[in-house]
Write a protein that binds this DNA or RNA. Structure first.
Length: 901
RNA sequence: AGGGCUAUAGCCAAGCGGUAAGGCAUCUGGUUUUGAUCCAGUCAUGCGUAGGUUCGAAUCCUGCUAGCCCUGCCA
């Protein structure tokens, strides 16, 4: 038998190399095959509910790293809570309606819209959306989530839609839903509203006119404020003129006429009207001009000057003709100044009675007549024609216009106070979140919830014969029930009368003629009712304990959820809100294909492994924007190796552990110290999990593993573990401590690197379950021994000094490894006494000889001590201490025992 | 333009009015039986920038710069 065979060197199947990229998939399959989630849920069945409501990503396209971070953060929480006494009921969701899906189908030429009925088209959309959901789900699961992807919600689910309709019914009941006008892109040629994506820009020749509006204040009684427009047909819809609040304006005189316009645009104005001679009469700041009354250039009506941030000095006069029915900015300004939204165009592009004498004219035809009239009335300052980029219908290739159409709105004004109250009741984990959302709610206009599209949840409104909407919750709930049974396609497949309760009558429909609304709801409404749809259908609380989304969702989902929640339930749908930042490249710039700085989760999972991506997520300050790059991921991999090797060392040295248990007080001093430190690590880590400060967990673990375990405890206990026999008590105590460390650290890391920690756990012979996910988080034992802690803090400081001396001896080539050293510490009586209180001092310093000498001055001497080496433990001894086989007494005894057995 | 966030070494970061933690990486030196290697030393008179308040500022105030999120029938 060779001596090295008598040493108990570590052995474990838990390999040094992780090979995550190949093995993670198998691990995940194993979890699903063995129903880990179901088992975990069974264990948690009667525990307290902790609902983290998943905000649904949009079901289109590949996942980006932001999606991945979002779900990984949630998974940390789901996993942690499920191992900490909570019933988490994980349901992941998808947002499945909306224009991008319609576009994806149309653009890829997959469907010929003209040949499909609405119902057929919607079925295609559904098919596509469900496929996207499956793709994305697969990508999500490759991140190693606790969920197995079985429990999901989709905004196209029948039950989901039904609940959405019921929430809408409640909003109707509360009286906050109303019909109003809002301008949208409108194509007269196809008589429909268009989405931005359906608009293409081509060159078009348009009249460009300067128009003077008479100012009605005494001070400016002979002055005309000058606007510039390329759409003369919108002049009949004019409701005022906007100027920029920060610009300077001048009254100038040209051939006895006075005009008001932005000072910096005088030159270009003169050039356009072929004038050179002018003089400045007066100069004004914008605020002086606000609210000055104006006379409409065509009609006998008054308007006034408004201030608007959308006004620019890039073209025109710095004075913008404002027709709220025919322009987006104009519409927004109209809300601020409470001026009417008037549309002078019908669906075919023909002027309506609101256009007065121009009624019946096609809008383009009206241009020239209006210009003539302006000329006659002395308001047309100049007319030219320009060629510019102008929006066209992508199908008919004909020009489109902005036109105010009937839209459904939810009045925010009426519930603003309730919303703000609800906000203040929420726990905003990013403290500024409250300010951000409140400001948005304070400043936001009514919510336009209708869209002129097909792929979405229909607005469940039936109109009477007289054309009035039936705003009756009973009717709406009937429709909801219908949707629950048959899905919302029923709306598109059936006539209005079939959608009403059987035998339904209405005084306004004596002939039982009804029509139905054709608009669908804004997709924000869809996802915004997740709180109700998911909770009602899955039998859980309405109010989520937590929502966790990207910072863009203050305007998005946090916002829409709040509104629908407050209206339907009277309080916010979430108790706490946590938001994460966006992921940028290594310079902090946004990722984009053109810059080539995009990193996809797929790449990371394939090149590094999901655990590396997860560890990265846990290592950064995710509440602000974060940076990712290959360099950063490589660094995370180093940390990963550290953890993995730590687990490996523990497993390797637990091979001989027979599960002996010791009371804290029975343990040796240093073991107690380590357990106290471990206890604090557990406490800090659990606190960090509770407050979602995941990077603190890693920091705590890093420090413990590096400074306490790796460089101290693990270092010197090798001389116990490798050398002492299996039944040696000192060894067993150390093993007991290692066992505590292993199980605690592995559990603490489980939510963050589940693949690795479960792999380690499966190599641990005392596991209670096959999967660590079925274990509970470690508990804080409350170990304390102030004396011991003090002693070791002081010892570790002195150890640093001793190590320095040893190093210095090495540099002088006086010694090699530390076991070749003899150390003499000369120090004050107090220090010597203190050091004498420490057991195993020499062992912990990993030297062959240690002497403590009382002296006036502190000094550390290191000399070479290489008398006779024991061939087994490699410590050096005096000749008298070593036997003829070159073994020390202790080793000789051990070998004898081994041979006897 | 406005609302919100961020800025500390090559990287991840602590610090929250008392004189810049920790980890990773690098470099230097040493040790090593695959005994996870380990150890020592090195590494910001400096906290985006310019001012101000203070006995004292990375921390408080003001201006500026840069990046990010929001104001889409994108999420």
């Amino acid at each position: 038998m060779e001596i090295k065979d008598t040493l108990l060197t570590p052995k474990t199947k838990f390999s040094m190399k992780a090979n995550l990229t190949n093995r993670e998939k198998n691990f995940q399959k194993d979890w699903i095959d063995n129903q880990v989630l179901e088992q975990r849920e069974k264990l948690n069945k009667n525990k307290k509910e902790f609902i983290l409501l998943d905000g649904p990503p949009y079901a289109n396209g590949e996942l980006h790293v932001g999606h991945a971070m979002n779900k990984i953060l949630k998974d940390f929480i789901w996993r942690y809570k499920s191992m900490s006494g909570y019933n988490t009921q994980i349901i992941i969701g998808w947002d499945t309606h909306g224009l991008p899906i319609e576009n994806a189908l149309l653009k890829k030429g997959k469907v010929k819209r003209d040949k499909l009925t609405d119902v057929e088209f919607r079925q295609k959309c559904e098919e596509y959306a469900l496929k996207q959901v499956e793709n994305q789900k697969e990508s999500f699961l490759s991140l190693g989530l606790l969920t197995n992807g079985q429990k999901v919600y989709k905004t196209l689910d029948k039950k989901y839609e039904a609940e959405q309709i019921r929430v809408f019914g409640q909003m109707i009941d509360k009286g906050i839903v109303y019909k109003g006008l809002k301008p949208v892109y409108w194509s007269p040629s196809s008589q429909s509203a268009l989405a931005e994506a359906e608009v293409e820009y081509y060159d078009k020749e348009s009249p460009a006119i300067y128009v003077g509006f008479d100012m009605l204040s005494e001070k400016f009684c002979d002055v005309q404020i000058v606007i510039w427009t390329t759409t003369p047909w919108t002049i009949p819809a004019n409701q005022g003129v906007c100027i920029g609040p920060n610009f300077e304006y001048s009254v100038i005189e040209i051939s006895n006429k006075k005009y008001l316009l932005a000072t910096s645009l005088i030159d270009s104005f003169l050039k356009d009207i072929n004038q050179t001679e002018y003089k400045i009469v007066s100069i004004h700041i914008a605020s002086e001009l606000e609210n000055i009354e104006l006379k409409h250039p065509l009609f006998d009506q008054k308007s006034f000057i408004m201030l608007g941030n959308h006004v620019t000095l890039e073209a025109g006069t710095g004075c913008v003709h404002t027709a709220p029915g025919h322009g987006e900015d104009d519409f927004i300004i109209s809300k601020k100044y409470h001026i009417p939204v008037i549309s002078v165009i019908d669906a075919k592009g023909v002027m309506t009675s609101d256009a007065g004498i121009y009624e019946g004219l096609f809008y383009e035809k009206a241009n020239s007549i209006i210009c003539e009239d302006l000329e006659k009335k002395n308001h047309l300052i100049n007319l030219t024609f320009i060629t510019h980029q102008y929006p066209h219908d992508w199908r008919t290739k004909k020009p489109i216009i902005y036109r105010a159409t009937d839209q459904w709105f939810a009045s925010i004004k009426k519930i603003k106070k309730d919303l703000l109250d609800a906000i203040s009741d929420v726990n905003w984990i990013n403290t500024w979140g409250e300010v951000r959302l409140s400001n948005m709610i304070k400043g936001r206009d009514d919510w336009c919830i209708s869209r002129q599209r097909k792929w979405g949840v229909p607005i469940p409104i039936i109109y009477t014969e007289e054309g009035n909407p039936i705003l009756d919750q009973v009717v709406i709930n009937h429709i909801a029930d219908l949707f629950e049974k048959e899905g919302s396609n029923v709306w598109f497949g059936k006539d209005a009368i079939e959608l009403l309760p059987i035998g339904y009558t209405h005084v306004e429909s004596p002939n039982s003629i009804f029509t139905k609304e054709t608009d669908i709801m804004d997709v924000w409404f869809d996802s915004g009712v997740a709180h109700s749809s998911v909770s009602k259908n899955k039998m859980r609380s309405y109010q989520a304990d937590l929502v966790l989304e990207g910072s863009d969702q203050y305007r998005g989902w946090f916002n829409s959820s709040l509104i629908t929640g407050v209206v339907s339930q009277g309080k916010a749908p979430y108790k706490s809100v946590l938001s994460h930042g966006f992921i940028n490249d290594n310079k902090g710039n946004k990722m984009s294909k053109s810059l080539g700085n995009v990193i996809t989760p797929k790449e990371v999972v394939n090149n590094h492994g999901a655990d590396i991506l997860r560890l990265w997520v846990a290592s950064v300050d995710y509440q602000s924007d974060v940076k990712i790059s290959n360099q950063i991921l490589d660094q995370v991999s180093e940390t990963y190796k550290k953890y993995r090797n730590c687990m490996r060392f523990l497993l390797g040295n637990l091979q001989n552990y027979q599960n002996q248990k010791f009371e804290f007080n029975e343990l040796d001093q240093v073991d107690q110290y380590i357990l106290i430190e471990l206890d604090q690590v557990i406490e800090k880590s659990l606190n960090a999990y509770e407050s979602y400060e995941f990077k603190n967990i890693l920091q705590t673990l890093n420090t413990f593993i590096t400074n306490i375990l790796s460089s101290f405890y693990f270092d010197f206990i090798k001389d116990i573990l490798y050398i002492q026999e299996v039944d040696n008590v000192r060894r067993q105590k150390v093993e007991f401590v290692l066992n505590q460390i292993f199980i605690s650290l592995t559990k603490l890391l489980t939510p963050i690197i589940p693949h690795t920690s479960n792999e380690a756990y499966q190599n641990y012979q005392y596991n209670n379950q096959k999967f660590i996910f079925l274990e509970e988080m470690p508990e804080v034992k409350g170990y304390k021994n102030i004396e011991t802690s003090k002693l070791f803090t002081s010892f570790l400081d002195n150890r640093d000094l001793i190590n320095k001396e040893i190093e210095s001896a090495r540099e002088q080539k006086r010694i090699g490894k530390s076991l070749e050293a003899k150390v003499i510490i000369k120090a004050s009586k107090d220090l010597i006494n203190q050091l004498n209180q420490i057991d195993e001092l020499q062992l912990m310093l990993i030297v062959s000889k240690l002497e403590l000498v009382q002296a006036d001055h502190f000094s550390i001497e290191v000399t070479k001590y290489t008398e006779h080496r024991c061939e087994r433990c490699w410590k050096y001894y005096l000749e008298t201490e070593i036997n003829q086989n070159n073994l020390c007494d202790s080793c000789e005894c051990i070998i004898k025992n081994i041979i006897e057995r």
